[in-house]
C-alpha cells in the first residue's frame, strides 16, 4: 500500500471517462444530451477522449426550445462538425403545435419546463436507453442526491427514495424494457473544476460566456437578454451594456452578469469573488424552493 497524490482534475477526468465507457458498454442505445452550455461541451470533450482514435459512438440530442441564444446554436453546429458526430434536434415548438404542451404566458413565460415533454418523446421515438447529461451534484440541492446512473421509469420519473445504492466504482445499468437511465459522468465536478478543465484543455465555448456588449432587459434587478421571446412589462428597462453569462439556458430565463471578464482566469476569479452560486442566475429555479426537484420527478433532466 502506498499513499500517492494525484491532481484532483486528473482524478475527475479518469473517473468521467470510465463512466462514459460504462454507458457505452452497458446500453444498447445511448445518447448525449447536448445543450450548448459549458458542462455539455466538457462532456463532449471527455467523450472524445474516451474513444479516440474511434469516433464518439453515440449521437448528440439537443432539445431546442426555440429560445436559445443564436451564438449557442452556431457553436453547437460547428462542434458536431468537428467531432463528426450525429446531431439530433427535436423542437419544443413541435410539441406546442401538436398541443402536447401549452405555451406559458405572462411576464415569466419560459419554455424551460416544457422541454420535458419533447425530451421524453424523443427518448421514445429513438428508443434511447441511456441519456448522458452534464448535470453536476454541486449545482443544486436535489442534484446533490442524484446517482451517477439514475433509473427512470416508463414515464421518465425520478423517485429519490427508490434510488439504487452505488458502491465503489461499480455501476449497475440493468433496466427493464421501457425504462431508461440518466447518466451523469461529471457528477463530482464543481463549477470551478469545469472552468479549470476548459482552461487546461483549451476547450472553445460560445462567445456569450465572455464579456460582450449586449442589449438587455433590466427586470427585478436582473439582466435578461433582450429578445423577441421575452414578454415585456411596463416596469422593464431596456439597457445596453457589457455583460457575460455564467450559465447558458434559454434567453428568457438566464440572467447576465455585469462583467468585463473576457478570459477564463478573469472569469474564475470573478466567480469566486462573487460568492454567488451559478444557478443564482437561473430564474427557472427560483420559482420555489423545490422547483428543480419537482421538475426532475416529472422527467426533466
Amino acid at each position: 500500500m502506498t499513499h500517492y497524490i494525484q491532481s484532483h482534475l486528473k482524478t475527475l477526468e479518469d473517473e468521467s471517462i470510465y463512466i462514459i465507457r460504462e454507458v457505452v458498454a452497458q446500453f444498447q442505445k445511448p445518447v448525449l444530451l447536448f445543450s450548448g452550455g459549458k458542462d455539455s461541451i466538457t462532456l463532449a470533450r471527455l467523450a472524445q477522449k474516451a474513444f479516440y482514435p474511434s469516433k464518439i459512438p453515440f449521437p448528440f440530442l439537443h432539445i431546442d426550445t426555440g429560445h436559445n441564444f443564436p451564438e449557442t446554436i452556431e457553436f453547437r453546429d460547428q462542434l458536431v462538425k468537428e467531432l463528426g458526430v450525429e446531431l439530433i434536434v427535436r423542437y419544443v415548438q413541435d410539441s406546442i403545435d401538436q398541443k402536447k404542451v401549452q405555451e406559458e404566458t405572462g411576464k415569466h413565460a419560459s419554455r424551460n419546463a416544457l422541454q420535458t415533454v419533447t425530451l421524453l418523446d424523443a427518448i421514445e421515438e429513438f428508443g434511447f436507453d441511456a441519456c448522458m447529461g452534464g448535470a453536476r451534484r454541486d449545482e443544486e440541492k436535489s442534484r446533490a442526491k442524484e446517482r451517477i446512473f439514475s433509473v427512470r421509469d416508463d414515464f421518465g420519473q425520478w423517485d429519490a427514495k427508490k434510488q439504487r445504492p452505488e458502491l465503489f466504482n461499480i455501476l449497475n445499468g440493468k433496466i427493464h424494457f421501457g425504462e431508461n437511465v440518466r447518466a451523469f459522468p461529471i457528477s463530482n465536478w464543481t463549477e470551478e473544476d469545469v472552468w479549470s478543465y476548459i482552461a487546461q484543455e483549451g476547450i472553445g465555448l460560445p462567445s456569450i460566456y465572455f464579456a460582450h456588449q449586449r442589449k438587455l432587459v433590466k427586470r427585478d434587478g436582473a439582466y435578461l437578454a433582450h429578445s423577441e421571446y421575452l414578454n415585456l412589462v411596463d416596469s422593464d428597462e431596456i439597457v445596453d451594456t457589457v455583460v457575460r453569462f455564467r450559465t447558458v439556458g434559454d434567453m428568457t430565463c438566464t440572467a447576465a452578469f455585469l462583467s468585463e471578464a473576457s478570459t477564463i482566469p478573469d472569469i474564475m476569479y470573478e466567480n469566486k469573488a462573487s460568492k454567488s452560486s451559478e444557478r443564482g442566475a437561473r430564474i427557472d429555479d427560483k420559482r420555489s424552493e423545490a422547483a428543480l426537484e419537482q421538475r426532475k420527478k416529472g422527467g426533466y433532466f
Binding site: 451534484r137 454541486d138 446533490a144 442526491k145 427514495k161 457528477s187
Partner: peptide, 10 residues
C-alpha cells in the same frame, strides 16, 4: 436526511 447528499468544497 433520507438520502446520501454530496457536498463539494475546497
Amino acid at each position: 436526511t433520507i438520502d446520501v447528499a454530496h457536498i463539494y468544497f475546497s
